[in-house]
Design a protein around this nucleic acid. Structure first.
Length: 111
DNA sequence: CGGTTGACTGTTT
DNA sequence: TAAACAGCCAACC
């Protein structure tokens, strides 16, 4: 049906942003799950790339994206600290070792 | 234009 | 349990 010619970069970006925006407060999704929900299975790194280039003023709930181990992915600056703070303010509990229980807080996009 | 890098992940040692 | 490996691919230099 819908011809699925190579989606442009912008289309991929839009799909990823849409998925992240749909994550409810207090829930998290992994990079891989976001990619898969956006129709891009196996492109977890693409999600990370996008978030890395996200402007500071962005309203996207970027803090709700964590890695498959349920931990906050490392990066330069105080990003990881701010991310954890934001998640804790939403009610997300961190286990000893800085891990989030994905079985409890993981979000699976409907559909 | 080609090589390197990296907010990833599942599989295999 | 931990480390190495193999895919991934746009951004960067």
């Amino acid at each position: 049906m819908t011809p699925r010619p190579t989606p442009s970069m912008d289309e991929r970006h839009a799909g990823i942003y849409r998925v992240i925006r749909a994550i409810p407060t207090g829930r998290v999704m992994t990079y891989g799950a976001v990619a898969a929900a956006a129709g891009l299975p196996g492109r977890a790194r693409l999600v990370g790339m996008l978030l890395r280039r996200l402007p500071d003023r962005s309203r996207l709930p970027w803090q709700r994206v964590v890695n498959a181990a349920g931990r906050i992915s490392a990066r330069g600056g105080g990003g990881p600290i701010e991310q954890r703070l934001r998640l804790e303010l939403e009610g997300v509990r961190f286990l000893p070792g800085g891990r989030i229980d994905l079985a409890a807080y993981g979000w699976h996009a409907p559909g």
